[in-house]
Amino acid sequence: MRAAISLTGPESAWEANSLASWLRDDPQLRRYGHAELAPPAVGSMGAGEVVTVVLTQLAGVVSLVTAYLQWRQAAHRQVSGARLRVGKAEIELDEIRSLKDYREPIEQFLQRLKELESEGPGLTDEAS
């Protein structure tokens, strides 16, 4: 399944490169997949950047969010407009302020993913 973290803002290109590198080096996330920097969308004019992560299991979503939060906190980044999208499900990562606060929103997000998965195909191919 494809997961996409979109970043917006004046430093989004630099932040996306930094995040993609961090995710590629995360040992827990590597167990579930790999990260890559997505090419800019046609006509986007650099307004935002997307880091794509290909996950082999739904459990990888938790590792992805954990790695993202660790990256954000490691350098006290003030990232705004960060969103995680997997298929038709989306969560605003800015609302999760710390590793202590992520359990409930991620459980709700995983529940939504499970619901979408039970509805049929499409969950794995629509992240962008």
Rank of each mutant, 00 (worst) to 15 (best):
R2M: 01
I106K: 03
W22A: 10
Q111I: 01
P105H: 07
P121M: 12
A89S: 09
L64T: 00
V54Y: 02
A59R: 09
E90S: 11
G43I: 00
A4I: 03
S118C: 09
E115L: 13
Q28W: 02
T66A: 07
P27D: 08
A67S: 11
L23N: 10
G122T: 03
T52S: 15
E126Q: 08
D125T: 07
V62G: 01
G46D: 02
S44R: 11
D94L: 11
S21M: 15
A75N: 14
S21I: 15
V51I: 14
A82Y: 01
S80G: 13
R85H: 00
A59D: 14
A38E: 15
N17D: 15
A89L: 02
P10N: 14
S80C: 06
A67T: 01
R97D: 07
E95M: 08
D94P: 13
A35S: 09
T124S: 05
L37P: 02
L69M: 11
V50P: 02
E115I: 15
A38Q: 12
S12W: 13
H34N: 14
A47I: 04
E36T: 15
K100T: 13
L113I: 00
T56R: 08
R77H: 13
N17Q: 12
A3S: 12
D101E: 12
G46K: 08
Y68A: 07
V79G: 01
R31A: 13
E115C: 07
L84M: 07
L37Y: 01
R31H: 10
G81P: 13
L37V: 09
L123D: 04
I106F: 06
A3V: 02
E107H: 06
P40L: 10
